[in-house]
Computed example of a mutant assay.
Amino acid sequence: MSLDTVVKDIREEANARAEDIRAEGETRAEEIESAAESDAEEILADAETAVEREIDQLREQRLSSAKLEAKQKRLEARRDVLGEVREAVEDELAGLEGDTREELTRELLEAASVEFDAGDDVSVYGRSDDQALLESIVDEYDGYEYAGDVDCLGGVVVESEQSRVRVNNTFDSVLEDVWEDNLQEISNRLFEQ
């Protein structure tokens, strides 16, 4: 073998070896690139899922917040309407006249009188506009006297020092009891759903 043949064989072997290395490099580069693309796709999918989840959470929070705000406004409006109804009832009670006012006042005084013993000195207070009415009614009771006015819509406040009892039978107190006992029913009637 000549030197040229040896050189040629070495070259061919080196070229073949270089070709194998290049092919291995390309295969390895393709594997790395494929793995990187796969990782990138996975990272992108995870990021998209996280963004969608965050969007859903924000949407849910905003929806919940809007629902809560709407509920609060509805409750405020209901409270306002109930307040207006209460004021209208108070105005009606304050405006009662004649036989109706006298009958209610008599019933409230009679209901209060059972709390006092015979012989007690009983003081009766009421609305200043009802003074003449109250004076005529208390004349029918022994030991009772009209003692002055109290700020109320009508009715009576009755007290006795001997019994140490004070009974508030004003229209206001009766309305308060009735209002509290029937608030749910009033609300249901006003806001039927």
Score class of each variant (00 low, 15 high):
S2N: 14
S2C: 04
K8T: 10
E12W: 04
A16Y: 07
A16W: 07
R17S: 15
R17P: 02
R17C: 11
E19P: 03
I21N: 11
E24W: 14
G25K: 08
E26P: 00
A29C: 02
A29Q: 09
A29E: 10
E31D: 13
A36D: 06
A36I: 08
D39Q: 15
L44S: 13
D46V: 11
A47M: 11
T49F: 11
T49R: 15
E52K: 14
R53D: 11
I55T: 12
D56R: 15
R59F: 05
L68S: 12
R74W: 05
L75N: 13
E76M: 10
A77V: 06
L82Y: 01
E87V: 03
A88Y: 12
E92F: 05
E92Y: 04
A94W: 05
G95H: 08
G98H: 00
G98C: 00
D99A: 02
T100N: 00
E102K: 15
E102D: 08
E103K: 09
L109K: 02
E110S: 07
E110C: 01
E110W: 07
A111Y: 00
A112G: 03
V114I: 10
D117P: 11
D120W: 04
D121H: 11
D121W: 01
V122S: 04
Y125A: 04
D129T: 10
I137F: 03
A147C: 05
G148I: 05
D151Y: 07
C152N: 08
C152W: 02
G154F: 03
V156G: 01
V157E: 09
S163H: 02
V165H: 01
R166M: 08
N168C: 01
N169F: 06
N169A: 14
T170P: 01
S173I: 00
V174S: 12
L175H: 10
E176S: 02
E176W: 06
D177C: 04
W179D: 08
L183M: 12
L183D: 06
E185D: 11
S187M: 06
L190P: 00
L190E: 02
E192L: 05
Q193T: 04
